[in-house]
């Protein structure tokens, strides 16, 4: 990630904004091991760090293949942060908490 991006993000998203509701979408493929792990990991992450401040939507791409094209999905599982802006895409099973923090633009409290 470039420093410019970091700068832009930090400018737009000061850490003291408390009432922001995070709108998250997790795209998964059925009950594949990666998908199940990603669902568990993101749920744990959100409960720990964004309790009460997030909406998580889990979408099975197998059921809705057209979304894959619309959202330019290649790698799965993928977490899409719709809000606050900018949109960010996180791929993988969300096991790397450090990167999830960074991807969602959160200060790593712990």
């Amino acid at each position: 990630m470039s420093t410019w991006d970091e700068y832009a993000e930090s400018g737009r998203q000061p850490g003291n904004v408390i009432n922001t509701i995070y709108k998250l979408r997790l795209f998964v493929t059925g009950a594949s091991p990666n998908s199940l792990r990603a669902i568990t990991n993101i749920k744990v992450f959100c409960e720990n760090n964004l309790k009460g401040k997030y909406e998580l939507e889990i979408i099975d791409i197998y059921q809705q293949p057209l979304i894959a094209q619309k959202e330019q999905i290649v790698a799965l599982p993928m977490l899409l942060k719709k809000f606050p802006l900018p949109e960010r895409k996180l791929i993988g099973d969300m096991s790397d908490t450090e990167k999830v923090f960074r991807g969602l633009g959160l200060e790593n409290a712990g």
Binding site: M1, S2, D5, F27, T29, S32, N34, R37, A38, N41, I61, Y62, P65, L66, A68, Q69, I73, V74, A75, L76, P77, M78, L79, E87, R88, K89, L90, I91, G92, D93, M94, S95, D96, K99, V100, R102, G103
Partner: peptide, 21 residues
């Protein structure tokens, strides 16, 4: 690449699904 953060294991099922569809 700049829009994407890799946070662990993933696969290219998205590509498979799009292609398959």
């Amino acid at each position: 690449r700049s829009e994407i953060e890799e946070t662990g294991e993933y696969d290219l099922d998205g590509l498979f699904i799009r292609l398959g569809y």
